[in-house]
């Protein structure tokens, strides 16, 4: 297992390098002069040259690339153009909120999606199955901002169960949890839809496999057959969709944070866009890229846990 972990971590290096290079190139090929974007088109040539120096844009492109890479390797994301604070500090300050939201959504998606999918497959064409199918269709068709506003209207404005204005950074843990419920549901429901679908189709396939017949021939109770024998085999596709979706969640968290007015990477991105804070934006892209690569590594490591064929190959 340890060798598998190390192998996977080494494999992540080229991926990260490629992603970082893409960010570097992307920021530089976007049309328009960044100094005009930042200072406006009325800025003097001198001011623009000064800014270019400050940004390191006057150096040859290769030198810029070396600077960029070595900075990131030392954990330095540069300074914000608008506030002049270290970007790493700003990101670290709000990152826990985004992680908290993403993980809560992951829990919602898995805890609701997996049993619903299993139930649907067990009672194929029954009530649970129809419910699961309609629900997951609705789930994938709703944009996050629409469902977010609906949730707010129903549970916060009408029923008043949860706060409308988020107090995600409240010191009181109960208050903090209450503020997390609606955003996590909003982000998680979309995932419930995907997880339910994958679980349902995986279970339908697994339940018709020969090894399930063997398990039944052993005289095991049906519940044991379903969970121990069929479900274990569906863990691989479930981990795949959860892992893939973790990347989508990180992106969707942005929308949800904005709708629910929560601190987090999402709000920071909006700030960066409004301020035309080009270096902050680049830093945020790097952080998101790291997060997604990390999510993929975790997914692959989980494969090793749920599928014996992966680690013994």
């Amino acid at each position: 297992m340890l060798r598998f972990v190390i192998k996977r971590l080494i494999l992540a290096i080229p991926t990260l390098w490629a992603v970082l290079t893409t960010v570097f190139v992307l920021v530089r090929v976007v049309p328009g002069d960044p100094t005009i974007a930042i200072l406006g088109d009325q800025a003097s040539e001198g001011a623009r040259a000064e800014l270019r120096d400050k940004l390191g844009l006057s150096k040859p492109i290769l030198a810029q690339y070396v600077d960029f890479m070595s900075q990131i390797l030392t954990g330095d994301l540069g300074r914000s153009l608008s506030t002049n604070r270290p970007i790493a500090d700003d990101v670290l300050a709000v990152l826990p909120y985004t992680i908290e939201l993403t993980l809560a959504a992951l829990v919602v998606g898995t805890v609701l999606g997996v049993p619903l999918g299993v139930l649907a497959a067990k009672n194929r064409n029954g009530f649970a199955d129809w419910f699961a199918r309609i629900f997951s269709l609705a789930g994938v068709s709703f944009p996050a901002f629409v469902s977010g506003i609906l949730l707010l209207l129903v549970f916060a404005v009408e029923l008043r169960w949860f706060p409308v204005i988020s107090s995600a950074n409240a010191a009181d843990p109960v208050e903090r949890l209450r503020a997390l419920v609606l955003p996590a549901l909003n982000l998680g429901l979309l995932m419930v839809a995907y997880v339910t679908r994958v679980t349902r189709s995986g279970m339908l396939k697994a339940l018709s496999e020969d090894y399930v017949r063997t398990a039944r021939a052993k005289g095991l109770p049906y519940r044991t057959v379903v969970w121990r024998h069929a479900f274990r085999n569906v863990l691989v596709p479930i981990v795949t969709v959860v892992g893939l979706y973790l990347g989508v969640l990180i992106g969707n968290a942005v929308l949800t944070e904005i709708v629910f007015n929560r601190p987090g990477i999402g709000k920071l991105i909006v700030t960066a866009l409004n301020q035309r804070d080009y270096s902050l934006l680049q830093g945020l892209m790097v952080v998101s890229a790291f997060a997604i690569v990390l999510a993929n590594i975790l997914t692959d490591l989980t494969y090793g846990l749920v599928d014996p064929r992966v680690k013994t190959q």
Partner: peptide, 25 residues
């Protein structure tokens, strides 16, 4: 019937490649 299966009557299937559960020892 569950209590009979695997206890007093056992069955071997045609397909050894797929009749064992791939994720259990």
């Amino acid at each position: 019937r569950e209590s009979m299966r695997g206890d007093r009557i056992g069955m071997i299937f045609q397909e050894p490649m797929t009749s064992l559960n791939p994720v259990l020892p």
